[in-house]
Design a binder for these strands. Structure first.
Lengths: 245, 245
DNA sequence: GTTAAGTAAATCGTTGACAATCTCCAGTCA
DNA sequence: TGACTGGAGATTGTCAACGATTTACTTAAC
């Protein structure tokens, strides 16, 4: 688990470019995903440049990269804004993620080794424990690792890149803590189904179980979201546009 | 007056293109896809800037965007190079494209109208004619339109964007003219199968037929490619890295 | 004749400044 | 009182120049 967090945060993005714009980009990305730059808020080039002690050039380059990645919106002559996701956006991300997850599962059936299967089994077993205890904090990182392992086993760098970009975009929509009581158990039951499909090297079943797993995740998320917005329906009119804190 | 405003304020998308770096980017993209900038060749910022009559700033921005999109490779302190696809890259693109195409097909089953079905039928019928005549030049654009219609019917902007980026990347690998005698007929038979699946609103069949269509396309392409490289095996050592003219 | 070091040219990465555009607020008029 | 016009301030878009790194060529030594 420390592996997982240590892998996602530091090296890859910075090693990618020793150049300033690469560092700046990673910095801005952190500011966005941490929520320090609020959704819909403007990203002031001067302010960022001043804060990071560099010129505006690298900041501009970094912003353009993040626009391309979907984390920022660019309005000419007005600046770049932290992207705000509405419900339709989230559905799009889920649907695409479901497709990519399914594709990853089906591709992996042809290449997975028994050692790699063992690793996946270990992760699912760990999630069984977390789910039984209702411990989301220990469940979540293992869940990420489970899907990341399958993704990497495809050996398809473009698939990996697309999927990870999607995950980052999804983080714009803050849904941590949006877990219903049975969500963990249901989710891991689906993991077991995926595991079975991989075990039998059944690419069709691997696609189906993986695809449905994400689609069920979408349903679980929206169910919890709707329950929350109905409960605190004070600001009901903009509820579908609001990000959750 | 109304004429002027109507002409000068068209759409958001065009405003973005009006930005100098946007124009430059489109220009470089054309140079790459037309082959004027050869695969593996270096893109000289100064030369491009001079040629287009702008400063290096917009050229840099455009290049970074194209790097993000996958059309250029960036090597720090050395410059950007037109991406060269090897066989593994092409397989990756095909696999991912197959998955996205399948996803598009399965998503569309739930929303397609009879009028839209009619349009697809018309396109497939046109391809039947082209295939019978062995006319690739008339077959190709209709084929593109057929898949693009399905893609747009999904209403998933992220799926559309990912797919189109993949298509552009694929064009780096020049395979026009790489068509075997039966390719058109086989391809359109698969189109018919996709049509049937959509007709029955069978999302599983829509995924399968669409996915396999692209995978068969991959096999057809590699078969033709291998035949070509074996025939003219003069420069055999770099054959798997060479682009086809 | 071949290899290695050193120098010069070229190119990239970054910076600061200037011009164009937009936003915001005050002032004016109906 | 409300809406419109004007200008000041702020921000983005673009440019030209400087320093750092890489590449290529020349020269010298083995």
């Amino acid at each position: 688990m420390t592996d997982a967090t240590a892998r996602t945060i530091p090296t890859v993005a910075q090693m990618r470019e020793n150049s300033l714009s690469g560092v700046v980009r990673h910095e801005i990305e952190t500011l966005i995903l941490s929520g320090e730059l609020p959704a819909g808020g403007r990203v002031n080039e001067n302010a960022i440049a001043l804060r990071l002690g560099v010129s505006r050039g690298p900041v501009r380059e970094a912003c353009r990269g993040l626009v391309e990645q979907g984390l920022l919106d660019l309005i000419p002559n007005r600046g770049v804004f932290v992207r705000r996701l509405d419900r339709h956006d989230v559905e799009e991300v889920y649907d695409l993620r479901a497709g990519l997850t399914g594709l990853a599962g089906s591709l992996v059936t042809a290449r997975i080794t028994s050692a790699e299967m063992d690793r996946l089994r270990t992760l699912v077993a760990a999630m069984d424990v977390s789910a039984a205890a209702g411990d989301f904090r220990s469940f979540y990182p293992v869940n990420l690792e489970f899907h990341d392992v399958i993704l990497q086993l495809t050996g398809n760098s473009r698939l990996i890149k697309s999927y990870r970009a999607l995950i980052k975009e999804f983080q714009l929509f803050r849904t941590h803590g949006l877990v219903q009581p049975n969500a963990l158990r249901e989710s891991n039951e689906e993991h077991h189904a995926i595991l079975d499909a991989l075990e039998h090297r059944d690419s069709v079943a691997a696609y189906d179980t993986s695809y449905r797993h994400v689609q069920h995740g979408k349903q679980r998320m929206f169910a919890a979201f709707d329950k929350l917005t109905q409960a605190g329906a004070a600001s009901a009119d903009g509820a579908h546009n609001r990000t959750i804190e």
